[in-house]
Design a protein around this nucleic acid. Structure first.
Lengths: 205, 205
DNA sequence: ACGATCATGGTACGTCTGTATCATGAAGGT
DNA sequence: ACCTTCATGATACAGACGTACCATGATCGT
């Protein structure tokens, strides 16, 4: 036989090609042949490693979500050795905004998947839909910690604020993608809300 | 000739068929033949009233946006004879959430269009993308009025809060659509923020 | 009443799509 | 050394898609 290749590695390369072309021309416009060309392989190879298009899409989605998770984690680590709850939350939220080309692609393709999932049963019960729940729990915990440490205003409802921040972040991200808002102004809005939640020192408003 | 028909009326019927099938099976999956079947006319007729698919999509988008505008306006009117700023804003935001089947369809199709617009130049510079700006101005004005009338907390930055509320509303709407959140909990989150902005009486926190 | 015009039907064409089939060289096990 | 098995190529197929073309009653203006 020919050289035994690492299937998983191959699949990753193809999935990344899928994400690239989806980010460029939109997920709806991506075909098997496009992915093959972008990955520099033949159509047959894409069929070989992913038997059907649906499996390719599913794998691509997982790969996308994993990459996003790493991106956020790296951003949080970059926030410092022992960042406070606010710095951590801020890093998470800002990492979710489509600022550079990479996160723009992620946001666009992710939203495309989400739209598809509404009418496609196979994508609907995919675990990537649960990652927002995980994020919500994480932010809630951080806010609760801040509240316990008297870093946040006493009246804060941790979960409601967590939901709000994540929904805002998602909404702002979409409007950045649509070209309605600049990343800077979106970041400023998020910061304003964090300022409100994390009162500094003893000010009571 | 045959009975002279009202072209605009016909186009509206077909556009509504487009929106219905798009809401059911997703905008990406909608074809000329599907629209024709849903509208109960022949494929030729869809071609006759909209020469090309792109024109059909554009018209459908306008129709969708117009319908949404009416929906919101009706909801605001239903808020009472002379509603205060808070009731008005609340009506606007709640009308934007995908609660019933109609608004669910609107949200889904609208989001599909927005995703397409990112990679499609023809849709990108469509006026419906400006309606968020109009909403932002309207909410900002209402918040400013409330502030001037001492109904809102003094520290409120009207525009930042308007942006936040609309972004939250959009983000919450998307998560409702994805089945991650119930309409009720989303409405509760929005209400919590309105409670915060519109302090009651003389409380200073 | 008649011819120009409008609304509609049917259908064919070319292209693109995802998938399946046939073919073949290259290297593993024994 | 041989035969199986793996990786890859080329291409064919059936269907759906948007669009274009031809046909034909119906009715309006005159």
């Amino acid at each position: 036989m020919p050289k035994r290749v690492d299937h998983e590695e191959r699949r990753t390369e193809i999935a990344e090609a899928l994400v690239r072309v989806a980010g460029r021309r939109g997920l709806h416009a991506v075909g098997m042949r496009d992915v093959a060309a972008e990955a520099g392989v033949s159509l047959r190879l894409v069929q070989y490693y992913f038997e059907t298009k649906e499996k390719l899409l599913l794998y691509g989605l997982q790969h996308l979500a994993a990459g996003f998770g790493e991106r956020v984690a790296a951003r949080v680590r970059a926030a410092g050795e022992n960042p406070g709850p606010r710095a951590t939350i801020e890093a998470m939220l800002l990492a979710s905004l489509p600022t550079d080309e990479g996160s723009r692609t992620f946001h666009l393709v992710h939203t495309s998947y989400a739209v598809l999932a509404v009418t496609d049963a196979a994508l609907a019960d995919q675990p990537f839909l649960k990652s927002p729940d995980a994020a919500e729990d994480a932010v809630t915990d951080l806010l609760q910690q801040a509240k316990d440490a008297h870093l946040a205003r006493p009246g804060t409802d941790a979960r409601v604020e967590a939901i709000s921040l994540l929904a805002m972040s998602a909404g702002l991200g979409t409007s950045i993608l649509a070209g309605q808002r600049s990343p800077e102004s979106a970041a400023a809005v998020l910061d304003a809300h964090l300022d409100r939640i994390f009162r500094d020192g003893g000010r009571n408003d």
